[in-house]
């Protein structure tokens, strides 16, 4: 136990401030306030891989590591769509995942925010829309509020994307 404590103290806090380009921090502050106002400080995200290669998943994991610490913005990942505020979808939507994605979306309560994450989610990426096994991009299947490009997007781009959904979504709050 002592060794664990010593290691924790030795490493210390490594969480970094977000990149400051393009007034991003300001956006962060704004939307953190929005999460606080609309979701009582906690935004629950349901994650669905609709056909990804697992690259995007690694970067979503990274957004949870101590450097980025996405939880500090009040963002948490939930195991059920029933109490999720936002759906985070990766991958081109495969024909075998289409129904599961639709059912997950259906199971969510309003406002059903949706973020399409990565080039595949945005436009099917290298797998292509002219592919028998691909039903389409995420927006072809369910309504999408924001898109983050990248193959895969970096953890800071993911955080930025989540904050952007909050900004672009104009459903009655």
């Amino acid at each position: 136990m002592l060794r664990i404590m010593r290691q924790i103290i030795k490493v210390g806090s490594i969480t970094e401030p977000l990149p400051t380009a393009d007034g991003f921090e300001q956006l962060g502050a704004q939307l953190k306030a929005k999460i606080k106002q609309r979701f009582q400080g906690s935004l629950a995200i349901r994650f669905v891989d609709a056909g990804s290669c697992n690259g995007c998943e690694l970067e979503v994991h990274a957004a949870n590591n101590a450097y980025y610490d996405i939880e500090r913005f009040g963002v948490s990942f939930t195991a059920s769509p029933r109490f999720a505020d936002m759906l985070l979808v990766t991958g081109p939507v495969s024909i075998n995942m289409k129904t599961a994605l639709e059912m997950t979306y259906e199971a969510m309560p309003a406002p059903k925010l949706v973020l399409a994450l990565g080039d595949c989610a945005a436009n099917c990426g290298v797998f292509g829309q002219d592919n028998y096994a691909i039903a389409g991009s995420v927006a072809d299947i369910i309504p999408v509020d924001a898109v983050v490009h990248g193959c895969p997007p970096t953890p800071s781009a993911i955080i930025q994307g989540i904050l952007q959904v909050m900004d672009s979504h104009h459903h009655a709050g």
């Binding site: 056909g51 990804s52 991958g91 995942m97 599961a100 292509g128």
Partner: peptide
């Protein structure tokens, strides 16, 4: 399994 089948061999 098979849920993330993306037709890679055909592609």
């Amino acid at each position: 399994l098979g849920y993330v089948h993306k037709g890679i061999e055909k592609r």
